[in-house]
């Protein structure tokens, strides 16, 4: 009898605990989503309506705001989307392919400087890219590559964190026997990598391609120092430009619309692929 009472007491406490947890989680969910909700609402409203006050219901000016933003001569938004997309897609392709190649090179072959190379990549993973930016800008200036996409795309071939992720994945997923049997069948080493190893690595490639794409899409520091001409600007640069413009003279509908344009592609991609992305976060970071 006494024990029964105790268990029912415990159940009450557990339920209280659970309710408390859900309340906290609900609060955090609202905190995470509310600003984006406000963004989407205000992107659908006209400037005078936005100035009048905030409502929780969307307005009817979504298409007008979009058209106004497209017609804005100072903000080449379509061009910006195109540039951002091109840079991000190239970065994603290059970083995943060449990091996988390097990871395979270190995983599958025995050579003298193998351990040294691996340690070196681990070390450079911690070096912030900003500290070598000065040298990069000067070098690109000497090579006449300032105001081009080259310094924004090519360096992604050497992405240490993508390499590390690929290396972890190969360790757990690629038995060396597969490589050896491919060799016996007469496949060249490159064939082996391209037609046998890459397909095995598909899940890792996909996750890292997403992360590389998003990183390049969101990157602001380097592009803002490299790109100067109007038609080469990426979305983060356009947002910074909007921020430095005289805000009060601006059509707020367009402001919200531009922010939405910068955010929503990544948001949609995330909603579609969140399961794989969330699973992929921990894999490349700490050796569990």
């Amino acid at each position: 009898m006494a024990s029964k009472k105790k268990t029912s007491n415990e159940r009450v406490i557990l339920n209280l605990q659970r309710t408390f947890c859900y309340l906290v989680l609900l609060f955090l969910t609202v905190l995470c989503l509310f600003s984006f909700y406000m963004l989407i609402i205000n992107a659908t409203r006209a400037h005078p309506d936005i100035m009048k006050g905030f409502t929780l219901l969307p307005g009817k000016s979504l298409i007008t705001n979009w058209k106004n933003l497209m017609a804005n001569q100072n903000l080449p938004v379509l061009q910006g989307i195109g540039n951002s997309f091109f840079i991000s897609a190239c970065s994603a392709l290059l970083s995943t392919y060449f990091s996988a190649l390097a990871a395979f090179g270190i995983h599958a072959y025995n050579f003298k400087f193998r351990n040294a190379a691996f340690t070196f990549i681990l070390l450079i993973m911690m070096v912030p890219s900003q500290v070598s930016t000065l040298g990069l800008i000067r070098l690109m200036g000497q090579w006449n590559l300032l105001d081009t996409f080259v310094p924004l795309i090519l360096p992604s071939i050497a992405s240490a964190s993508v390499f590390f992720f690929m290396k972890q994945y190969l360790e757990s997923m690629l038995p060396i026997e597969i490589v050896e049997s491919a060799r016996m069948d007469g496949a060249s080493e490159f064939r082996t990598f391209n037609s046998i190893v890459l397909p095995i690595m598909k899940p890792a490639l996909a996750v890292q391609a997403i992360f590389s794409f998003v990183n390049a899409w969101n990157n602001y520091f380097l592009p803002s120092l490299i790109i100067t001409s109007k038609e080469k600007k990426t979305l983060p640069i356009l947002i910074a430009q909007l921020r430095s413009a005289d805000f009060l003279k601006f059509d707020l509908g367009q402001v919200y619309m531009l922010i939405a344009v910068a955010i929503i592609p990544v948001l949609l991609m995330y909603l579609l692929l969140s399961r794989y992305i969330v699973r992929g976060i921990t894999l490349g970071s700490v050796k569990g």
Binding site: F98, S132, L139, L154, I157, A158, E189
Partner: peptide
């Protein structure tokens, strides 16, 4: 000896790193 393939496969990574990060770091 397959060792050379190891070097070939890690070469793009290291060459690009040397040009776009290591050399700029040193010149910085």
């Amino acid at each position: 000896s397959y060792a050379k393939w190891g070097y070939i496969f890690i070469a793009p990574f290291f060459i690009v790193y040397a040009i776009f990060s290591l050399y700029p770091l040193l010149t910085t």
